[in-house]
Design a protein around this nucleic acid. Structure first.
Length: 463
RNA sequence: GUCCCGUUCGUCUAGCCAGGCCUAGGACACCGGGUUUUCAUCCCGGCGACAGGAGUUCAAAUCUCCUACGGGAUGCCA
């Protein structure tokens, strides 16, 4: 009944890539699913590119996606420190164990790990020269995703560089041992390295953890071949944050990259995902990140939000564009959003979609303008609507009264329905031909605003 | 070069381990129609895949082998 202990061990690069986020998420989900511990360990051995800012990007990304850690930076834990740059004493200790066991040797100032097996020299195509190789016994890896993988190492490898700094393979294994990691869930690019790691575990006399190698995330085929890199559009978590995606939706989309609950569910709340998550359901083949699908999931989340919450997310989007002030009336904001929420698929598009509710200075769609103003007698029609709506008192300005006013207008002109006046009116008050439902839109805009804009369009059409 | 991993609709995938219920299911995208006298919502429909070959079997998307393609490792990067 040993407790599950998993870790996410990123190297802070200044970016939080979707692939890293997926690795982090799967570890986190597994910990939460099993009631185990999720450890965040920072692999900051490459001093040159590890900065405070780079770490901040990472931690911010983790928090934005709602992943918390049980041990790691800022909160500590019983197996710290959680920065590799601060663990050199531990590495020295473990290096001594390997030395004592006679599994190391020095060459050109660097410390090598010595493989066991018959030695021979051979011309190596890749290196283009004769090199020493070792016939080491094949290592058997029981991978939770790929099954049994057998691979033999053939060369000794560096564990401490000539400048005294330990290498990735070494510190990774040492830390996993020292931190009591039970499951190593990581990208497939490490699968071939795993034989090195198992050699090291064996040399320390420690049973290796359960490995699970995740398929890679490839770039959108339209963008080219190969795995997704940080330069690809949509590859960075920051991008979704900036575009006002809901973190829960992005997390849901990432969870679906190479995993599914085994049934048709796609949009799931985090509790459901945690409950359903299991390593054995992870895909073997590489996946491609689909932005359109992420946008769709995002919309599903957006639709379900209570209007209060929707407004909480929408307010910063609108203030950023200068459409509303910081202290803009919450009631008014919610009345606007209530009629827009079901129509619009992303928060990013919100300013364009509903800007005219907040300012008179909104763009007019040229196509719509030409179509509507060229047809019939725009100035006359606008005047008729204005007269009809003027009869509705401010205190009575609601959908029912507006409907009645339009119908009265139709009747007065021998029309069965007021359709003739709608498109022009919509254009007059919003500058576009589409938007929220018509009458609710007028109601929310308010009497003064609607009459003012009708007058304006009437004047501009007449000129 | 050598070694390792992978390959189902354009994309994400179900099915594969325990072969028949698969004329291969769902979702996104796309296309068409409808509702909404706006519309980006919504509804209906369509398009569309087992990489190729050989073998095992009464029967293969499912098992075996080969080939092709994709990816990874082979770093004093992580």
């Amino acid at each position: 009944m040993s407790e599950v202990r998993v870790r996410f061990a990123p190297s802070p690069t200044g970016f939080f890539h979707i692939g890293s986020a997926r690795t982090a998420l799967f570890n986190w989900l597994y910990a939460r699913h099993t009631g185990g511990k999720f450890i965040l360990r920072i692999e900051d051995t490459d001093a040159a590119r590890n900065t405070e800012e780079a770490l901040e990007v990472l931690l911010k990304g983790m928090r934005w996606l709602g992943m918390d850690w049980d041990e790691g930076p800022e909160i500590g834990g019983d197996h710290g420190p959680y920065f590799q740059s601060q663990r050199s004493e531990i590495y020295k200790e473990y290096l001594a164990k390997l030395e004592a066991a006679g599994r190391t040797y020095e060459q050109e100032g660097a410390t090598f790990f010595k493989l066991e097996g018959e030695r021979y020299t051979e011309f190596d195509e890749y290196h283009g020269k004769e090199i020493e190789k070792v016939k080491a016994a094949p290592v058997e890896i029981d991978d939770a995703i790929r099954g049994k993988v057998v691979r033999a190492e053939s060369r000794d490898f560096v564990i401490v560089r000539s400048d005294g700094s330990p290498t990735f393979h070494f510190v990774n294994v040492v830390d996993d041992i020292a931190m009591g990691i039970t499951h190593v869930i990581r990208g497939e690019d490490h699968l071939s390295n795993t034989s090195k790691h198992v050699e090291l575990f064996n040399a320390f006399g420690v049973k290796p953890p359960q490995f699970a190698h995740l398929p890679l995330i490839l770039k959108d085929p339209k963008m080219g071949k190969g795995k997704m890199s940080k330069r690809d559009k949509g590859a960075l978590i920051e991008e979704y944050e900036e575009r006002y995606f809901l973190p829960a939706a992005v997390r849901n989309a990432i969870a679906l990259l190479g995993w599914n609950p085994g049934d048709d569910r796609e949009v799931m709340d985090i509790g459901e995902i945690i409950e359903a998550f299991d390593i054995k359901d992870i895909q073997k083949g590489a996946a491609r990140f689909d932005e359109a699908k992420t946008a769709h999931i995002n919309f599903q989340y957006l639709k379900e939000l209570p209007v209060e919450t929707y407004a909480w997310f929408a307010r910063p989007v609108l203030t950023a564009k200068g459409l509303i002030a910081e202290d803009h009336s919450e009631d008014h904001l919610q009345r606007v959003l209530a009629i827009c929420q079901e129509k619009i698929t992303s928060l990013e598009a919100l300013p364009e979609f509903c800007g005219y509710f907040f300012t008179d200075d909104y763009p007019e769609d040229e196509k719509t303008k030409n179509k509507i103003l060229k047809k019939g007698e725009p100035a006359e029609l606008a005047g008729q609507v204005k007269d009809a709506l003027s009869k509705v008192e401010a205190g009575d300005w609601n959908v029912a009264s507006l409907d009645a006013a339009f119908n009265a207008l139709a009747t007065a002109h021998d029309q069965e329905k007021p359709f003739r006046w709608w498109p022009l009116t919509r254009f007059a008050v919003s500058g576009v031909s589409s938007g929220p439902d018509f009458l609710p839109m007028l109601e929310v805009l308010g009497r003064d605003c609607v009459l003012r804009r009708l007058e304006r369009v009437g004047a501009s059409a007449a000129s």
